[in-house]
Design a protein around this nucleic acid. Sequence first.
DNA 1: TCGGGCTTCTCTGTATACAGGAGTCTGCTT
DNA 2: AAGCAGACTCCTGTATACAGAGAAGCCCGA
Lengths: 216, 216
Amino acid sequence: MRASDMAYGSLRADILEWRLPPGTLLAEVEQARRLGISRTPLREALSRLVAEGLAAAHSGRGVVVTAVSLAGIADLFEVRLPLECAAARLAAARRDPAAFDALADRFEAAGALISSGGTDQHAYYGLVAELDAAIDEAAANPYLVQAQRQLRTHLVRARRLARDNPDRLLASAGEHRQIAQAVARGNAELAAAAVTIHLSNSLHHLQASVPGPLDA
Amino acid sequence: MRASDMAYGSLRADILEWRLPPGTLLAEVEQARRLGISRTPLREALSRLVAEGLAAAHSGRGVVVTAVSLAGIADLFEVRLPLECAAARLAAARRDPAAFDALADRFEAAGALISSGGTDQHAYYGLVAELDAAIDEAAANPYLVQAQRQLRTHLVRARRLARDNPDRLLASAGEHRQIAQAVARGNAELAAAAVTIHLSNSLHHLQASVPGPLDA
DNA sequence: TCGGGCTTCTCTGTATACAGGAGTCTGCTT
DNA sequence: AAGCAGACTCCTGTATACAGAGAAGCCCGA
């Protein structure tokens, strides 16, 4: 493992999990010392974060962790909607039915688990990530995967703006189950519709649960 | 201007204009000497190219300019279609009518110029880039702009696979005029339809004019 | 003659040293 | 007291030196 890859992964995780909140100044010498590496690989990691949009080069003063705002989330979903729909359509056309049937079953089980109160949020988001990965794999389009990766990165950070309650998690599980089922059946339009519903509900929940625009 | 920015721009232009054809090995010391800079800023430029998908890190042997294939172009357009449609819809909703009316007029003039034989391909592609930029600006969505920038980068390279003939250029000018007009009128669905037609024709032309899959 | 292993060489990955510039603080002037 | 100018300081941007890893070539053995 290269030191720059390690630094990139570490910083990226720290930003995504809000250990490095928006507005944090990432000084080169400080971060290099913190991670136990030299400035050279750290600079490469920082440039990758900047390219990804997780940090911005604050001219002359180093790079700063970018802000997350309500307006930004709306923009994010404006792009996610057509892209996720396209991915779902392609996946429906090229999928392996068994894989998505299995995912649909697991979302049904997750829904039952949530209703019974045994909510494991971390595990649930892992399952969502599995569905995303399965759709990406079925869509088999590297350009699509790259674009999705960028957007999902920002989504992970935006999630922390909202308090996830069991009701929303239960509804989300049902929506994801619908998506997986539609893809499993090879019904592209149904899959796109299910994605549209899910993203619409997801955005609405996010906007409703954030008190005001949070800049930092 | 930073040396790394200069190197990035120079290498990017060289790759896009096929002065560095697919498969070219970009050795650090060689390129650094060619550009008259040190390895440090050159490495930053290379990492940006890799992140952009224009080059790939060939483990242990440096980075190599990525290939352009027919299958890759089909993938590219699979993503471009929903994204350009979304951009056109947003632009139609938020546009400044005068700007797009002016662009429509310029495409009409460009069409007349092409029919009369005075084709200036370079200037025409510049006009297309202006329309793209105007749509981006009107859509006012940074995530969309970033995704589009990535895709259009690869498109520029793919264009060189096809021989542009005056007939196709004339048709393209008409299609772009339709897009600009639809956006100017604020008709989102019409704009999306015009984009769909243009991309479909564009892809068909590309696929028809390439003899076989070109890997390198 | 062909294949495998070893050696060597080159190239990447990393660390560090140096220079230029931007920001800030302080002191002076009005 | 407030504003401006100058200098200082820290931080980024760049160059270079060094080490380790991978690849290629060569030699030896079968």
